[in-house]
Amino acid sequence: MEQYSMNLTLKVWRQKNSAERGSFETYPVKNISSEMSFLEMIDVLNEELIRDGKDPIAFDHDCREGICGMCSMYINGRPHGPWQNNTVCQLHMRAYKDGDTIVIEPWRANAFPVIKDLMVDRSSFDRIIQAGGYISVNTGSPVDANAIPVEKDMADAAFAAAACIGCGACVAACKNSSAMLFLSAKVTHLALLPQGHPERRTRAMNMVAQMDKEGFGACTNTGACEAVCPKGISIENIARLNREYMMAGLASDK
């Protein structure tokens, strides 16, 4: 890949804290190498801002390897930017060319209030997990791991759902701010494994109830979530969640 350098215009959402209103600020950035990651480009801008005595842009990030789920930027109308199956920390500047304008916003959803600039509060996701996203087993002496064989296809499908990094891009992409893709990934992961069966009925019910309580919207099957999910979590999981939920409803009616 040939390396090249570019000048860009950034329009970035700045908001001092959750109480104050935010607005866009425009920043030119120069001599950006195509080999930089997107966040390294922001690092360069932040260093400049600090040197000029200004407040750097606050944003969440940690692993910079696409796995911790912390980074969260809404770039030119798309969570995590233009690449498929990608987080913004893995986005590299060769996705852009000289002269481009890039608009950067935080995730926008009632259940994800802005903390500062591009940083939002996603603790609602933790509370959804608290409502039932686990298998109730204490540390101790469970049976030997190989005493529970799991069909390879099932295990692979459970793994595919468990790959969710809890980033919240699905919510940010959804016009209803629904958290169904996130929630369905967890329900699917646990429902496909025999270890997860005993709590199947209560799990889906309780997690959905918590999601509603947190102020996430309803799912109208537009599929925007699946299209932006960095881990390729399939919308089929939502269908499974609906089945689990109905099963749970039937069971509790009797």
Binding site: A145, I148, A155, L190, G196
Partner: peptide, 10 residues
């Protein structure tokens, strides 16, 4: 054993 019981998909 513990991780498998928790549902870790090895």
């Amino acid at each position: 054993d513990q991780c498998v019981a928790q549902g870790v998909p090895f």
